[in-house]
């Protein structure tokens, strides 16, 4: 199980998370939501050890991941960063094979297990048919599934994804979310994703974590915690929450605003660098 204790993290001078305690349920799809710059990506990056906490710890089954060799962590916890860079000209099968890195050594660069895991991961993410194609020739949706396949080939019990649906059209967003939810369903796996779309979060998440300004506002099943009050507190947005006619999950409908909403400037922080898409490093061709 993945949890954080008194987690303090940030960038340079700025503290983004200030003492966060969080337990993420096993065998569930957890979605982290919150306004821009609320620290949700920072939290995910800290949990994936891409960012070193200033204080506190991220615990994997009770052990601080900082105390574990990074290779061991990589066998138990996979991560898909927000906009990973595609190596020039690499094929799908090769990139998915990179997920086997934590199981390989320079003298033993391939094993039966590696082959099996790569095949399984490609089949699972539905990219087996693209195995020999160069990744930079694929569409955004295909490319995202390839990255997910790489994380799956890593064969970890926990999988963290930073905004896996950004830059995808609606159909591809649904495709990726269906895949993520099915992952935890078929093989007890902790899947954690940061998402921007509250309604998608409500529909797909088993466990919803709502953050604002580096603090935890609410955590629990969407049907229990997603209310108009919570949305107002987290996003500073007046809304109506109704059951979705298709899935029955809570559906957030923003209230009509004829004049700009009054007196909520504090609740709408501006976008900052930490959370805006890394345009500069985003793979070309998208």
């Amino acid at each position: 199980m993945l949890s954080t204790r008194d987690l303090v993290a940030g960038y340079d001078e700025r503290t983004v998370l200030d003492g966060l305690d969080l337990d993420l349920p096993t065998d569930a799809f957890t979605v982290i939501v919150g306004p821009n710059a609320c620290g949700k990506s920072t939290l995910l990056r800290a949990m994936a050890r891409l960012l070193t906490p200033r204080r506190g710890a991220v615990l994997l089954d009770g052990t601080a991941i900082r105390d574990l060799p990074t290779r061991d962590v990589a066998r138990r916890l996979g991560v898909l960063p927000q906009s990973p860079l595609v190596p020039e000209g690499i094929t799908v099968a090769d990139l998915v094979g990179r997920g086997r890195q934590p199981y390989q050594r320079w003298w033993r660069q391939w094993s039966t297990e590696d082959g099996r895991a790569v095949d399984t991961a490609m089949a699972r993410a539905d990219v087996a048919g693209l195995a020999d194609r160069p990744v930079d020739s694929l569409s955004g949706g295909q490319r995202q599934r390839v990255w997910i396949a790489m994380a799956l080939a890593q064969d970890t019990e926990a999988l963290l994804l930073d905004e896996p649906t950004t830059f995808l059209d609606l159909a591809h967003q649904v495709e990726v979310l269906d895949l993520l939810r099915s992952l935890r369903a078929e093989r007890g796996r902790t899947v954690v994703a940061v998402l921007h779309d509250l309604n998608q979060a409500a529909r797909y998440a088993d466990h919803l974590v709502a953050m604002r300004a580096g603090r935890l506002v609410a955590a629990g099943p969407p049907r229990e915690i997603l209310t108009a009050d919570m949305v107002r507190e987290v996003f500073g947005l007046d809304c109506v929450v109704v059951p979705c006619p298709v899935s029955g999950a809570p559906l957030v409908i923003p209230a009509l605003t004829e004049t700009p909403p009054a007196a909520t400037p504090a609740a709408r922080p501006t976008t900052d660098d930490a959370e805006s898409p890394r345009v500069g490093t985003y793979p070309k061709g998208l």
Binding site: R45, R49, L50, G99, P102
Partner: peptide
Amino acid sequence: RSTTLDDDTARGVGVR
């Protein structure tokens, strides 16, 4: 091999 990955992805697969 890992030099062609970005740092976040490389860390994710257990490379320093």
